[in-house]
Simulated assay, not measured.
Amino acid sequence: MTAGGGHAVSRRAALSTPVAMALIAGSTTACAQETRPVAGPTSNILVAYFTRSGNTRVIANQLKRTLDADLFEILPAEPYPEDYQANVDQARRERDAGFEPPLKAEVQNLAAYDTVYLGFPIWGETAPPVIRSFLRKHDLSGKTVRPFITHGGYGQGSSLSVLARRAPGARILDAFVMEADQERRTINLITEWLGSDAGAEANR
């Protein structure tokens, strides 16, 4: 059990879960899909999520299919930079300033949902600023909230504390926490590769 009540899932254990198997099997097609906000409630379960690289979207789509739930993608009004490092830098500035970016859209008829699955990646050891915006705009009092969290190797950080502060009237259950650090790892590997090329050139 990790701080805040979430279950820390090891890389090996995570890969053996049904959700993780769906992540592996469906990553190519699901990441290419564009999720649109639900037109109206068709279920009493809502899956709301924010993603950058698509890992969280794959989990969200699996939850939608398994639970026959409605799906809502949390989007900032102004998209984050596509460049990974620029995105990291902006998210850090927003976190440090306590900035909450405006949302592109809000959930309609939130009162129709009893349970909300809330998904997001960990940015800067906490929930992304846009998740704080979502929680400020949506009153989850009286609802059951089930977080699902992806991270790049450093765990869930203070994200559950953010949920507890921003949704004090909600019943927050243990989180599904999964390491999914492909983007950061790829950047590091490329940097190392380019560094080795530079060293080889210097030794010629």
Rank of each mutant, 00 (worst) to 15 (best):
W193S: 12
I74P: 02
I187M: 13
F72W: 12
A14D: 08
G98L: 07
P41I: 01
G155P: 09
G157E: 11
L135K: 06
A175G: 11
P121G: 07
E94P: 10
A180E: 02
G169K: 13
I45E: 09
R165I: 00
V116A: 05
S158D: 12
E82T: 10
A20H: 11
V19I: 14
W123R: 11
A202R: 14
T144G: 10
E94R: 12
F99I: 03
R132S: 14
A60M: 01
W193V: 00
L118S: 11
A86M: 05
P37N: 13
D139Q: 08
Y154G: 04
L189V: 06
E78G: 04
Y49A: 03
A180R: 05
I172S: 09
A60H: 05
A111M: 01
Y154I: 02
Y84G: 08
N55Q: 08
R95Q: 15
G157C: 08
N61E: 15
H7T: 14
A91I: 07
G152P: 08
G155V: 12
G26V: 02
W123F: 09
Y80G: 06
Q90F: 01
T191V: 11
R185K: 14
Q62Y: 14
D197I: 15
G142E: 09
N203R: 06
Y154N: 10
R52A: 14
R92M: 11
V130A: 04
A175W: 01
A164D: 08
E100L: 13
E179A: 14
E183P: 00
A180S: 11
G142W: 06
R166A: 15
P102Y: 01
F99M: 05
E192N: 08
Q85M: 12
P168Q: 10
A200M: 04
A105R: 13
Y49W: 00
A200G: 00
A164H: 09
P147Q: 07
T144Q: 14
L71K: 03
E34I: 01
R93W: 02
E78Y: 00
T2F: 05
Q156R: 00
R92N: 12
C31V: 15
R132F: 01
A97V: 09
R204L: 10
R132I: 02
K143F: 04
S196E: 13
P18D: 05
A20M: 14
T51Y: 02
F50C: 08
V47M: 08
A175V: 09
A175Q: 01
A8I: 05
E34S: 13
L160Y: 06
G6F: 05
R166E: 15
A105T: 13
D114Y: 07
S27I: 10
I74A: 01
A198P: 00
I131T: 04
Q33D: 03
D96T: 02
G119M: 00
F148P: 11
